[in-house]
Write a protein that binds this DNA or RNA. Sequence first.
DNA 1: GCTTAAAACTTTAAGCTTGAAATATCGTAT
DNA 2: ATACGATATTTCAAGCTTAAAGTTTTAAGC
Lengths: 165, 165
Amino acid sequence: MTGASAIREKHDGEMVDRSNVRLWLRLLTCTTVIEKRLKRRFADQYGITLPRFDVMAALDRNPAGMTMGQLSQELLVSNGNVTGVVQTLARDNYISIAPSPTDGRASIVRLTQLGRECFTGIAEAHHEWIDMMLEGLTRDQRAALYDLLGALKISLADDKGKEQP
Amino acid sequence: MTGASAIREKHDGEMVDRSNVRLWLRLLTCTTVIEKRLKRRFADQYGITLPRFDVMAALDRNPAGMTMGQLSQELLVSNGNVTGVVQTLARDNYISIAPSPTDGRASIVRLTQLGRECFTGIAEAHHEWIDMMLEGLTRDQRAALYDLLGALKISLADDKGKEQP
DNA sequence: GCTTAAAACTTTAAGCTTGAAATATCGTAT
DNA sequence: ATACGATATTTCAAGCTTAAAGTTTTAAGC
């Protein structure tokens, strides 16, 4: 690890007409810094990984349970990935895997009592860490950033070179 | 910043609602979507991975060469990670690894002629893909987003819970 | 010269990630 | 009923990622 001082832009340099690339790199750097910081704190203070937290958070939002495919869609990761993360969470008794009563192909994944209890505390810390990291922005700045990212989401959905594999 | 708003801001650290978490999730989603899209296009059209592109981009900006440690710092990844990526790039003759003339511990990594030629075309495509993805934002929106992300970087640098590993 | 701490780097183990191939099941049109 | 394409999931290989432990070299003090 390079340490907390490495808050520099990934590819800063040419002031040419690369403003869009620079915007993207700044977006990437901010996200990377937050993600690595959360990852480290999850590991240090709770012995948990970010992907596991993400799965538990999705299950906490869906108490009725989710299929593997729903998890994959919601978390923007592959099916095979979900399989692996879910298996270790089940091994540690944080979640349960039950066959779907209506579809023999699907499984229903749920938080166990233990999983729900652990998750509550971790989510609280997660919430506080993010509050602290955003403390330097005013309320208006946060609102403006939220709205601009909404516009970016729309721009991404409209991206021309998107889908023709 | 008005005095009235400063009073409300005082308790932001323990906000009851989850607006900061939602802001973070939106930031993460936008970054993830762009990253996955770039990754897929790099793989499909050039048979290259994102980490390799990042290393080549760093070396392209530093024609005199870089040490492994410099690469690690600039790319925000660990030393061991750089070792692996650099080895495969060297195996494929995109980069060269030479011992440092002044420091027997260090190596100097450089783009080869082949690496530089390949990188130029890929970087051009990279630039265009990003332009297309940001097409839905006005010039003003891009500038505002860039500035807000700058403010976020400062906020992250000031994050209190930052260092106690 | 000798010792020693720090620095640059590599190795290792564990885990995440993906895409492709394999397996099993479902739904439906014969 | 049965054959067939679609769907849900698992398995697998290859690559990325990190932290921790190990190696070699440097530089500083004695």
